[in-house]
């Protein structure tokens, strides 16, 4: 048998075998959900306009769900956290020491002011330095009879660890300025769990100050006493009204918002990037010329989005 005849025979056998396989056409059709179509000169079905419409709808639906769900079922979404005042104080002072600044002294009045601010945010359901009724951070500080020459406030929410909170403040220029301000001598913290905008979260309020009368700066003994009291309270998980700091317990929340948005976006991105890579490889191998936009450009831009997602993935929000 000549070489040509042998090839013809081989092809015939292949076709005969393919015809016998009843699911062959379905298989052939299904594979083009992932691979470009050589005859139709089209991209994979999962990269069609319709599919992209579905992906966009899915993301918008998810965002809508995050908005509606807290109103329908308050507390069903949330962020698990394990933050405590002692670690926040240690980390803050470590950052100041690195900058050769004096460590801040823990002050009970500032902590009470921070607690009142956190409670006010939960009660009036806002996330801002200025309350909807116009109350400013200074009003909370003055309400605790802390007469100051300098004062400041840092806020954080949705964090799971104390070190991440301080790290995030250090990475934000305005918060860093507060943290490393040499005019501040004392600091107070409040770590309060609650529901904000229908989502369970932990609010961290940090208040800085320099008393008008410098002789009023908290002594080391008073500081140690207050810190000891907080740690005792933290272990016993008691009434939050007694002292400004609230139990730094580890909450188990049903659905973690942070995880869902991250997993959905990364899975979707990975899937589409993979399909575009397959498209480039398969089209070049089978010489498929399609009348579409540049797959290479789409691949590059989605790769950039992947890096962008990694950049904006932060452990919480600071204000």
């Amino acid at each position: 048998m000549s070489k040509r005849n042998s090839k013809k025979h081989e092809e015939k056998t292949k076709v005969a075998k393919w015809r016998k396989d009843v699911k062959a056409i379905d298989k052939f059709k299904f594979i083009h959900h992932f691979l470009p179509h050589p005859e139709k000169k089209e991209r994979a079905k999962f990269l069609s306009f319709k599919s992209f419409g579905i992906y966009i709808f899915l993301i918008v639906f998810l965002m809508g769900l995050f908005r509606i769900l807290p109103t329908l079922l308050p507390g069903v979404l949330g962020y698990a956290s394990n933050i405590n005042v002692t670690d926040l104080l240690t980390d803050t002072n470590q950052m100041r020491e690195k900058d050769r600044l004096e460590p801040l002294v823990f002050n009970e009045a500032l902590s009470k002011a921070a607690y009142q601010k956190a409670m006010d945010m939960f009660e009036d359901d806002y996330w801002s330095h200025v309350a909807p009724d116009g109350k400013e951070p200074w009003d909370f500080i003055l309400a605790e009879n802390y007469d100051y020459t300098y004062a400041g406030e840092n806020l954080a929410k949705n964090f799971s660890a104390s070190s991440d909170v301080v790290k995030a403040w250090m990475e934000s220029p305005s918060h860093r300025e507060n943290l490393l301000n040499r005019n501040y001598k004392e600091v107070g913290f409040a770590v309060v769990n609650g529901t904000l905008g229908g989502i369970e979260t932990t609010l961290v309020v940090q208040m800085f100050g320099q008393p008008r009368d410098l002789t009023m700066i908290t002594s080391k003994e008073s500081e140690n006493k207050a810190l000891k009291e907080i740690s005792t309270q933290a272990v016993s998980t008691v009434n939050t009204k007694v002292l400004p700091q609230v139990l730094p317990e580890t909450k188990v929340v049903p659905i973690n918002v942070d995880n869902i948005s991250t997993y959905v976006s990364l899975t979707l991105l990975g899937f589409i990037l993979g399909l575009f890579a397959l498209d480039m490889w398969y089209s070049s191998r089978h010489q498929i010329i399609k009348l579409t936009g540049h797959t290479f450009a789409h691949f590059v831009v989605l790769l950039v989005v992947l890096v962008g997602v990694w950049f904006v993935l932060k452990p919480g929000i600071v204000l």
Partner: peptide
């Protein structure tokens, strides 16, 4: 096609930025 990719890009980043 470019509009869809652009919208997809923005939607994806928004969901991570906001939540």
């Amino acid at each position: 096609e470019y509009i869809l990719i652009g919208v997809f890009m923005f939607a994806l980043l928004s969901v991570v930025i906001i939540y």
